[in-house]
Nucleic acid binder design. Sequence first.
RNA 1: GUCCCCAUCGUCUAGCCCGGUCUAGGACACAGCCCUUUCACGGCUGCGACAAGGGUUCGAAUCCCUUUGGGGACGCCA
Length: 480
Amino acid sequence: MTTVKVRIAPSPTGDPHVGTAYIALFNYVFAKKHGGKFILRIEDTDRTRSRPEWEQMIIDAMKWLGLTWDEGPDVGGPHGPYRQSERGAIYAEHAQMLIDRGGAYRCFCTEERLTALREEQRKAKVAMPGYDGHCRHLSPDEIKAKLAEKLPYVVRLAMPKEGTTKVNDRLRGEVQFENAQVDDQVLLKSDGMPTYHLANVVDDHLMGITHVIRAEEWITSTPKHVQLYQAFGWTQPEWIHMPLLRNQDKSKISKRKNPVSLNYYRESGFSPAAMLNYLGMMGWTMPDGREKFTVAEMIDNFSFERISLGGPVFDVQKLTWLNGLYIRDHTADELATDLLTNMFNEKNLKAITPLIRERIDKLEDFVNHVGYFFAGDVSYSPEALQALVPKDKTNKDVSGMLAELLEIIDSLPRVEAADIDARLKALCEKLTWKPKEFFMPVRVAVTGRTATPPLGETMAVIGKERCRRRIRGAIAALKS
RNA sequence: GUCCCCAUCGUCUAGCCCGGUCUAGGACACAGCCCUUUCACGGCUGCGACAAGGGUUCGAAUCCCUUUGGGGACGCCA
């Protein structure tokens, strides 16, 4: 029997995601259950969106949760590198291998042609939009000529056009796909980087992955992966597609409708144990029905048979209840230590004091000045609410502005004073608002107050997660 | 639109595979009561679901089919 080896393969294109933690947990638990290995692989093949800061945050968040890996970019391992951007040669070689075997072909179609094609298909309401196979049957001479011209090209999967591909999913049984329904996916982009489809198959094979435990959204692309395994002549891993975490409205969990950043939960003071416990009960239950359990207990009792397939709604309220249980497990002393390390620590205090030094006359004034640096949500008094909307603006104007600000903040790894100041100024100018009209609503949204230290520094100390949740809260307040 | 997945209280779920023990159990939330100087915690009670229709069967939440509903995928994103 081969040793179980699984992986979590996040993409460093944004905040560390709760869905990543969810899938990582099940991979981790499964690996531990069977004495196997769990590895971390960074899928940073999207050159425009991947950033090292995001990668670092993912690693930090995973460490915070305690989901440690046996191989990964930081700890190395026998199958490295574990960062896909550093494995370019491997993918190029394998893409060539595929071309040689007829499992893939070069495609010289331009971005413009593909956009036009897509548009055409959309207008004609084509049942299965996709690549039309234009370059699939180019003659060797035509290809040679185009290569000689140095035309940029991609490598596409030569999907069989007849027959079916079977995917054996551990949780759902056999799922069949008509090959004609499956697109000739791009495997290698014109920048030489692989797409997910190629990279994940090649790496999973080379790294000896035995079980692919990933989210359900991948199930429709699995036939492509199965075809790739066959084209390479490799043995497939076992496929396990976990249900997707959902928003309240049942759509796939998203930052628009839910806090999805692990940093949010960390900074709000959720404990990793509670977080993992809660994630563990999304789609899985203890045999005895216990709701409070540790990862170790989950490992002891884990089996795929106890997974239910309905997409679980991620309910922050229930997570909060669970976290309360964990808080109460602590003695008062332990809780005090926790507070001292994570909230009222030297770093936080030293970040705040320069901002309020001029604003207090006695030490006891401190507490009344700094509540919003520590609090989660802020409430808006009638006066604050009034200040939120400047005289010449409507609620809609302000919520629109705040929504734009939210987008800006979302795109940043962290909020830094000078940087956010510049961005605020730029947004103000872009919207052609008067500074006075612009900055007060932002101040009120983020702090709940009309008088605060300078905004940029204040926001930096409050931090990205709190800033964004309060802005969201302000937008909601403006609606009612 | 096409393909794929899914379907028990508002939410997380047990039960479903191996039909009867299910007048469907637990938890969150909500409401009430108790505890209590207050608030919480804790305890108790209540509210609340087998999507619909057809089969199969002596008997179906459990098996089959259809419909409906929800979700996902359809990118040189992952």
